[in-house]
Each structure stands twice: as structure tokens, then as C-alpha cells.
């Protein structure tokens, strides 16, 4: 067995072990990125090999927690892809207004960047009080960070530019307070956000949604797991509701494609059709 095959075996054994011991299932994640993240974690923690780390990961929950962090931390930014947020504001919010109460699911919310962006957008459209945003992630440590609403001050310049390009109608600086090197989002923004753990590989959906955002999360899944997650979203979405994917993700070639229409060409905003 050559070193590469041996490494493959180590990856497979570890993922099986993690599933058996902790119930987290990474066996259907896309391999190339997962392998990269695992190697990165090993190098940071200075383990000589995966086998050397395996015992500690399986026996020591603190080590596993760090491993889980390394595997699942997604990075995002506020109002990432401003054209998407502008289309959401201009073309989708009018539909949201027609419902008396709007339930929104941000799946794979990471540090809360998109959940806060949505809250700001909905506030400016006078809709926030009628909305409940469920922001979920597999990674509980990052959810704590999201709940605290603290972001790096150095990122605010990018976020401000994104906000303006996305059609923001106020001043982005009004939504946070600068403290030393960080920015604290106004606590009132999260009155209508519920951050909670949820695993797209294992858990069920939790109630009817009008809008689901899951952007740049499915790219880390293999085709089976993508299909599973999309079926969850489909079960959760009410007829006439909206599904938003990342700019390089598409429903094309997926089993759901037939019952969805892309609302804004190229921006991956899909509407679930009403049954005939």
C-alpha cells in the first residue's frame, strides 16, 4: 500500500470512528475540501499523521471539539454578493410582505453574517417585526460567536461597501458599535433571530418556512448529501416560498429542479411552485 492509499485509509477510518463515537457524519462530505481541512488542522496542531491524532480525537472530547471546528468553520461576509441581496430586497421582499408572518431559515449560518445582513435588510423594509429568522449551524462554538454579534472591525469596510451595493437605505455604521478592534452588532437586530444547532447530514427540518438561504454550504457536500439537504429544504418550504443558493450552486440536474423556478436569472433565487 503506497503512502497515499494509506492516508486514504486513515481518513476513512477516522470518519467512521467520529461517526460511531460522536454521531457527527462527515462520510458524505465532498472529499477534496474535507481532506484539505483535516490536513490543515493536523498541521496546526502539529500532529505527524492522522493516525497519531486519531486516538486523541476519539477519546478526548476537547480534542474532538477542536477537530470539529477545523472541519466545519465556514467563512462568509455580510451582504456577500451584493447583487443577490439587492435582488432579494427588490424582487423577493414584495412577495414576503404578502404573508402575515414570515419564517426564514438560514442553514449553515456560520458566524451569523447572513442572518444579520437579512435582519438589517428586513428592518429597512419595515418587515423585521413580522419575521422570525432561524439561523442554524452544525458548529456550536461558531453559533456562540454569532449570538454575540461580534465581528472584526477591519471587515466593516468591506461590509459597508457590500451594504451600499446591495441597496442599503441607511448608514451601515448605525448598525454596529466599534469597540477597539471589533464591531458589536446592535442587540435589537437579533431580537428576531434564533441561533440554534442543526446538522444537515442528520437532523430533520423544523417547521414551515417562507424563505430558505443556504449559500456556499452545499458545495462541501457530495451529491447524496446535497440531495438530502435539498429535500429537507423542500419539505420545509411552503408553496410559493423561496430557496436561495450560492452564486455557483444550482438546482439544475437535481431532482427538485422540476418544481422550482429561478426567479432572477443567475442569482440562484428559486421559487417553489404551487401545486397544480
Amino acid at each position: 500500500m503506497n503512502p497515499q492509499q494509506l492516508e486514504e485509509l486513515e481518513f476513512r477510518l477516522l470518519l467512521e470512528g467520529v461517526f460511531e463515537v460522536y454521531g457527527y457524519d462527515f462520510r458524505d462530505y465532498a472529499e477534496a475540501s474535507l481532506r484539505r481541512r483535516i490536513r490543515h488542522w493536523l498541521a496546526e496542531r502539529r500532529y505527524p499523521s492522522l493516525s497519531a491524532a486519531q486516538g486523541e480525537i476519539l477519546r478526548d472530547r476537547a480534542v474532538f471539539t477542536s477537530f470539529l471546528q477545523g472541519l466545519t468553520v465556514n467563512v462568509s461576509e455580510m451582504f456577500r454578493d451584493p447583487r443577490f441581496f439587492r435582488a432579494l430586497r427588490e424582487q423577493i421582499v414584495p412577495f414576503l410582505r404578502t404573508w402575515p408572518f414570515v419564517r426564514i431559515w438560514v442553514a449553515g449560518c456560520a458566524g451569523g453574517e447572513e442572518a444579520y445582513s437579512l435582519a438589517i435588510l428586513l428592518h429597512e423594509e419595515g418587515l423585521l417585526r413580522r419575521c422570525r429568522i432561524y439561523a442554524t449551524d452544525i458548529n456550536e462554538a461558531i453559533l456562540d460567536r454569532a449570538r454575540n454579534g461580534i465581528f472584526a472591525l477591519r471587515d466593516m469596510q468591506t461590509y459597508t461597501r457590500n451594504y451600499q451595493l446591495a441597496g442599503g437605505s441607511g448608514e451601515f455604521a448605525d448598525y454596529y458599535q466599534a469597540r477597539y478592534d471589533h464591531a458589536l452588532m446592535l442587540p435589537a437586530l437579533r431580537d428576531n433571530i434564533l441561533f440554534s444547532p442543526h446538522n444537515l447530514a442528520a437532523d430533520a427540518e423544523f417547521g414551515e418556512m417562507h424563505l430558505v438561504l443556504c449559500r456556499n454550504v452545499l458545495i462541501y457536500f457530495n451529491p447524496d448529501l446535497k440531495e438530502r439537504a435539498l429535500r429537507l429544504f423542500d419539505t420545509a418550504l411552503t408553496a410559493g416560498g423561496f430557496l436561495c443558493l450560492g452564486m455557483k450552486e444550482t438546482l439544475e440536474f437535481r431532482s427538485l429542479a422540476a418544481s422550482y423556478t429561478e426567479m432572477v436569472k443567475g442569482l440562484r433565487i428559486y421559487r417553489k411552485e404551487y401545486p397544480d
Binding site: 465532498a30 477534496a32 475540501s33 467563512v75 458545495i219
Partner: peptide
């Protein structure tokens, strides 16, 4: 590779993208 995404290739000969740092 699309702007702002990493491009990777999988063992099953499909293309993968990531937004890792």
C-alpha cells in the same frame, strides 16, 4: 476557477469549489 472560489478536483473526476479562506 471562478473568481473568489477555490477550484478542486475530486477522485470521481468531478469539479469542486470552496470558499475556504
Amino acid at each position: 476557477a471562478p473568481a473568489d472560489y477555490h477550484l478542486l478536483v475530486e477522485r470521481d473526476s468531478t469539479l469542486a469549489l470552496s470558499v475556504d479562506p
